[in-house]
């Protein structure tokens, strides 16, 4: 799979010759910023259209079916991808991505509402697990950044996804909190058997958290182009 694009006059090319992520795996893509980590996560989250894709299959643990994502992009079946995303994927952004006009409770329930599942006691349960029970009725703006990240994690897990994708989930939090949030996230993922894919530049933190690391190798940087290959890994 290849994604190339141009940003600020620089041609960027990310190629993924082969990448298999098994159910329950815990992966971290590590590399400096600008090495295409976010791009790769967005491709995996089926929100970014690959430039070329020989094969891209997704077999969510929940339904066991193999979905041909490459074909869905080919036929521009955006609704199918939206549905897969809403059911099987949880996504944590670097800066939370909470909706500012919804309370913490409604933010957590959002992902469940979308797939028409009951929201009874769901927010309470997750708030308790993530130590944000006191913040449930507040607006995200009133929370600290660390608390916001916890809410984001709660939201991305509340609908019982098969895969949790987190893009620099702790980059904007101080190191102490960062480690605690990582531990919390890994703990939940282990307990739920969710596949975890994280992008981070914090090599050490990822290592301590026990994630399998995949490096973004920058093959070539010339005047106005940059080629990155994600190292072939079978986990």
């Amino acid at each position: 799979m290849v994604k190339s694009y141009e940003a600020g006059g620089t041609e960027f090319r990310l190629s993924v010759p082969r990448l298999d992520i098994l159910k329950g795996a815990k992966l971290a893509f590590v590399g400096e910023s600008g090495s295409g980590k976010s791009t790769l996560l967005e491709l995996l989250a089926m929100i970014l259209r690959p430039t070329e894709s020989k094969a891209f299959n997704f077999q969510p643990a929940a339904d066991g079916q193999i979905h041909d994502i490459a074909a869905a992009w080919e036929s521009a079946d955006a609704d199918h991808l939206s549905d897969l995303r809403s059911r099987h994927i949880g996504y944590v952004l670097q800066s939370g991505g909470l909706l500012p006009y919804l309370t913490v409770r409604d933010n957590i329930n959002l992902s469940r509402r979308l797939v028409h599942r009951s929201t009874e006691d769901v927010a309470e349960h997750w708030a308790e697990r993530l130590n944000i029970a006191a913040q449930l009725d507040k607006q995200p703006a009133k929370l600290s950044i660390g608390q916001r990240q916890r809410v984001a994690i709660a939201r991305s897990l509340a609908h019982d996804p098969s895969v949790l994708i987190a893009d620099e989930p702790t980059a904007s939090v101080d190191p102490l909190h960062a480690e605690r949030i990582m531990e919390l996230m890994i703990g939940l993922v282990d307990e739920l058997g969710v596949t975890l894919i994280v992008a981070s530049h914090a090599h050490r933190l990822m290592g301590r958290a026990g994630l399998q690391m995949i490096d973004h190798a920058i093959d070539a940087v010339s005047g106005n182009s940059m080629h990155v290959t994600v190292s072939d890994a079978s986990s």
């Binding site: 929100i47 609704d79 939206s82 995303r85 992902s111 979308l114």
Partner: peptide, 15 residues
């Protein structure tokens, strides 16, 4: 924009 993108990321359909 960002909120709409988050909604899309959460799995809301374009429509």
């Amino acid at each position: 924009q960002r909120d709409f993108s988050v909604l899309r990321l959460t799995g809301f359909r374009t429509r």
